[in-house]
Design a protein around this nucleic acid. Sequence first.
DNA 1: TCTATAAACTGAATACAGTCATAAATGAAG
DNA 2: CTTCATTTATGACTGTATTCAGTTTATAGA
Lengths: 220, 220
Amino acid sequence: MTGQRKVQILENTLTPGPDQPRPGRRERNKQEKLARIVGAARQLFRERGFAETTTLQIAEAADIGTGTLFLYARSKEDLLVLVFRDEMLQTARAAFATVNSDESLLDQLMHVFTTMLDYHEQDPGIARILLRELAIPNAVGHPADISELLNVIYSGLADLVIAARRADPYSQPEPALLVAENLFANYYLGLLGRVGGRSSRQQFLDRLRKLLAITIGDAG
Amino acid sequence: MTGQRKVQILENTLTPGPDQPRPGRRERNKQEKLARIVGAARQLFRERGFAETTTLQIAEAADIGTGTLFLYARSKEDLLVLVFRDEMLQTARAAFATVNSDESLLDQLMHVFTTMLDYHEQDPGIARILLRELAIPNAVGHPADISELLNVIYSGLADLVIAARRADPYSQPEPALLVAENLFANYYLGLLGRVGGRSSRQQFLDRLRKLLAITIGDAG
DNA sequence: TCTATAAACTGAATACAGTCATAAATGAAG
DNA sequence: CTTCATTTATGACTGTATTCAGTTTATAGA
């Protein structure tokens, strides 16, 4: 029914493979252009907000034609994900890297989620739209694919759960990855409420702690 | 910073109060027009999909001016919520009303969530956009406010939890409403994955059952 | 080097959501 | 009935995301 797509999106060639067989000028131009686009978009989104930034402004700041932008991102929303995906990935990695293994599992989880929350608190206006977009992630291979981010979060949480179980012989037997999903679902839905302006930071954190405790079976 | 809103949205006067002090022609016209808008939008969204329906088409089908549409909904997305909110509310109420109290809590929860899932399975294209919008609900009093729907779901789940506890003296002591939030978070995030095309119906249900079991402490 | 093919780029043109100055309808007051 | 103020309706207009037919640039082969 829908008309066939006419405009092809460029291949997403971050890390063109385990071995680099000489990039070639075309590839280098593409990467450099992508970097300019993402840089320009980041600055403009931060300075003016998402709705107040036009794709024309981004194209001008990146010194490319208006149509070229849409070869690198299918929509303005995709561009938003593209721009902040790496920061979110770094934030998540940093959150797991700074976990204190002497703390309780609950405290460890709160450390991870608080760190990720703080990232979004920097710019609630951006976070609101960004998290709405992330609700329905793009397919793997899509330019704005976030599967790596989700993977880092889920496996990171699962690792914390597994490590905590070694110290507790009476722990639950559920697969750690499922527990991780359950934990993250509670964080994410609460975060949506937080950036939607329906709870204060402290309310969010207090409630999150209780929700996580229900899942890991620790009534603290 | 942002320019002040110029266009006022009409008061949302569903149920103008416990007592009806005679509607008046103005009020009747407004309600009738809203009904025409919602009816026209529902049919067009169903027939052609959200993106393929224009606000002009909706206005024509409802026999109103293009600008009038935006007195009843602030945006096309609001219109989508406005259109399907009542159906979702009815579905949720029906789901809770048909719970079999002889079943285990887990089976009762699965009945509720399966019923709500089936509603969205009818039109995955609409569900995808609708659930994305619902991720960040509008403020109470907004024309497309869904607080009543959320309230029905949360309190319904909490009631099931409370009822199940009467039969189990060793149950968890957490407030039932928090448990309900935890349960719903798992349903909602899984549903987003389902309508996002990242799991089959059966995969979603199997995983949901396990996630719910973790929360209510029933390893079944 | 020259040529052919494919990939990448471009910006004028398009389509559409949302606005706003103006007009019509309503109800209240006399 | 006749003002007059307030609410509601209207559609021409505006701004901007996205498209696409045509152009340029890179690469490979001869």
